[in-house]
Design a protein around this nucleic acid. Structure first.
Lengths: 210, 210
DNA sequence: CCCATCACGTGTAGCA
DNA sequence: TGCTACACGTGATGGG
């Protein structure tokens, strides 16, 4: 199978012991006419040490990165190299998830999701629909009517679409009212988009657009 | 790229040529009266095997984590193990920075920063001040006056304080008007906080609070 | 060719 | 003493 006889059979275990002696004694690099045997061996030795040092450098690079990695995520316990990399994996995964949550922008289709974040205990809501100037005010009013206290919000608008992600403090009312309130906001947005500007005159002429 | 498991992973290629033989042939663990020489050697061999396999497992753990790391950050070029870890460092640093930008919550002191994001080309603004119900409406009006189109916003409120981070499309007006507009919003917030509710009656009685 | 990278086995130091 | 984790040197392999 993996027979590699040619190379090593001859050299037979001259792995390293005598080479140190060769390294210092002959030193015939400048002298061209010398035993080709020792010349070849000297070359081999030089290659070996070069290889050794290269590998050393490589290890230093890797371990250096691992060290900085460990310094920047205060894992404290489990200073284990493997566990540390596991932690790094966790962090990067976390990053990708939270970044994808909103940064990916509003979705093409209208969407409303309301759920409970078991990590923080807060209620969370994500809503994407057509953008319009007063949507923020409508959202504020809807949230007030649902007695929902928003503790954090992220929103983005691109290409006439908008997406909002809300963190709401838990209250006894639960998810239902929050979902209904936001659904009304979303539906109003789609309605106004389909019918050509059908708001009578009761609307405040002032535009609130973030 | 790396990881050529084919050769050694399976039982193939009995890495330890004679040891397996030693392992099975003497089998003197139960026999007390035997050459103590060979017993000691057998123990040593067993220890060596155990050690070897343990190290193998450790390597597999580390490389496994590195593999998942590489799979989840599509670095494409530079599949190098060291460079990969460098990329991971970059990503985690990025995460910590963007997370610290707002998630750390509003600062204790009033603060307004307006700058240019060279990465996205957008103008960015971060503002933290006392919270009040109509601050969002005020911000909207101020931004409209400054002709600033907000393309993304993150805001959080905790303990009566609020912090907002805004991404604004670049316009010829530049950073100045944007800064001035937001400064007025911030100053109004601090003013109302110091004087006990000093708004006349011109204010809309309705509260807009996200 | 040489160079860079990898997986491997081993020596060794801390810890139960 | 056994176990765990680490750094080291070495053979093999693939790409300029």
């Amino acid at each position: 199978m993996f027979s590699i006889p040619s190379l090593y059979d001859m050299g037979t275990c001259s792995d390293s012991y005598d080479i140190v002696g060769m390294l210092s004694s002959p030193t015939n690099s400048d002298n061209p006419n010398l035993s080709p045997r020792s010349m070849a061996e000297a070359k081999a030795v030089a290659a070996s040490i070069s290889h050794k040092e290269a590998e050393r450098r490589r290890r230093k690079r890797i371990n250096g990165h691992i060290a900085t990695l460990k310094s920047m995520l205060p894992n404290t316990i489990k200073t284990d190299k493997a566990s540390l990399l596991g932690e790094a994996v966790r962090r990067v995964k976390e990053l990708k998830k939270s970044a994808a949550e909103l940064e990916e922008g509003p979705s093409e289709a209208d969407e409303l999701k309301v759920w409970q974040c078991e990590k923080t205990g807060l209620m969370k809501a994500a809503l994407s629909c057509d953008d319009r100037p007063e949507i923020i005010v409508d959202m504020i009013e809807a949230l007030k009517a649902a007695e929902a206290k928003v503790v954090r919000a992220e929103m983005s608008t691109v290409g006439g679409r908008t997406k909002s992600v809300l963190w709401v403090t838990q209250n006894d009312a639960g998810l239902g009212p929050l979902r209904r309130a936001l659904k009304m906001v979303m539906d109003k947005s789609t309605l106004e988009a389909s019918s050509g500007q059908g708001l009578p005159a009761t609307k405040r002429p002032r535009y609130y657009h973030l």
